[in-house]
Nucleic acid binder design. Structure first.
Length: 320
RNA sequence: GGACGGGUGGGUGAGUGGCUAAAACCAGCAGACUGUAAAUCUGCCGCUCCUUGCGGGCUACGGAGGUUCGAAUCCUCCCCCGUCCA
């Protein structure tokens, strides 16, 4: 449904790929050449003050290209896919008025899907309900909630693994607050993005090379003062259980800082966690429809050229 | 030179005669995922064959022999590692 509206409308470029694949660099390159602006689609970069570890592009490296959807909330706030969608739609409307090409650099598959395909009309999260459910789970064991869900929504229970507490809670939440099954809520449809001719470019560097970049990027983040950033966050009173402190690297390094223990073990953990994260991203993006995959990093000149062709013409490099 | 302890699948490591291709954990690979998504969860993980079955074959617990219907597990010799005694 998305991008297939009767009149092709404005163009929209999406660059997606695993972490450290060079999405940001490619985005800036395309923006410069095509009079575009960047919409970051990353669930971690929406948090203010968590800059280095979330790999935000520092203003000094943005080459004058506006970067939207970054630094939207404070660390103790919660952010959701629905909120991302609302904000992104605002930015898109705004760029349309200025006749700028929107370029989305996407690392968070769920957020991108929320924007492109929409979300069902489901209730927002309810902290009170969730807290009650979490208490019950703690009391009766992890599988208890699954049985609870099965009682009112067999279909959802069949789809969700008994130990996937997070998804079970969400399902119970929808069932309870919407008053109908999750399946019914989802089947009621969702409204995707329309009025855009979407070009999706995927970065797919060789696995080994990607892993090497991940390791190298960690070093440069440290060199850029990641530790100092964390120290400042701690000093300014950001709670340890704040959402962004759960992001890869932040929790481990905070523990090093406060526990005074060595970092060599933490470094290995962080690099490994990042590799696993990249794998999950790859899995998610693999089934993304209408992709133009490029097998290199976003700062590779050959990739830049191919991406430019796709962004301009919407043709696969092989067909040109 | 002698006395003990130990050598197990990519790693750590359990396993003392059959239920063991070998626990568990890690790593790796694959997958799911419509408001926590850098999250959460699932599967596979010696090789191989097919009529894909709680199927067949082969290889595997340092090496070589042996005992036994049957050995990672018991015996003999050898090699290596650690600790201790000379």
């Amino acid at each position: 449904m998305s991008g297939l509206s009767p009149e092709p409308g404005a163009r929209l470029v999406v660059i997606l790929g695993p972490t450290a694949s060079g999405k940001s660099a490619l985005g800036i390159t395309l923006a410069e050449r095509l009079a575009g602006e960047i919409l970051v689609c990353d669930s971690t970069q929406v948090y203010r003050h968590f800059d280095i570890g979330t790999a935000k592009v520092p203003p000094s490296e943005q080459r004058g290209i506006p970067h939207h959807l970054v630094d939207l909330v404070e660390p103790q706030e919660l952010f959701t896919a629905g909120e991302y969608r609302r904000r992104a739609l605002e930015v898109l409307a705004n760029l349309r008025g200025k006749a700028k090409l929107p370029i989305i650099t996407a690392g968070t598959g769920l957020y991108l899907r929320a924007l492109l395909e929409g979300l069902a009309d489901a209730p927002e999260r309810s902290e009170e309900l969730r807290e009650r459910l979490r208490q019950k789970a703690k009391l009766h064991g992890p599988v208890y909630l699954h049985r609870l869900l099965a009682r009112t929504d067999k279909e959802a229970a069949a789809r969700i693994a008994p130990r996937d507490t997070q998804k079970i809670i969400r399902a119970i939440e929808i069932r309870t607050l919407a008053g109908k099954s999750v399946g019914d809520v989802h089947r009621s449809g969702r409204e995707g993005l329309s009025g855009y001719d979407v070009k999706k470019i995927g970065l797919s560097p060789p696995r080994g090379a990607l892993y090497a970049r991940i390791d190298a990027r960690f070093d440069s983040m440290i060199a850029a003062g990641w530790m100092e950033e964390i120290r400042k966050l701690v000093d300014s009173g950001v709670a340890a259980n704040a959402k962004p402190f759960q992001f890869i690297g932040y929790s481990e390094l905070r523990a090093c800082l406060e526990g005074g223990r060595g970092t060599t073990e933490a470094i290995k953990q962080i690099q490994q966690a990042t590799r696993r994260f990249a794998k999950r991203q790859i899995t998610w993006f693999r089934k993304e429809p209408d992709m133009h995959w490029l097998s290199g990093f976003g700062d590779d000149p050959a990739v830049e050229e191919a991406a430019l062709r796709i962004a301009r013409l919407g043709q696969a490099p092989s067909s040109s």
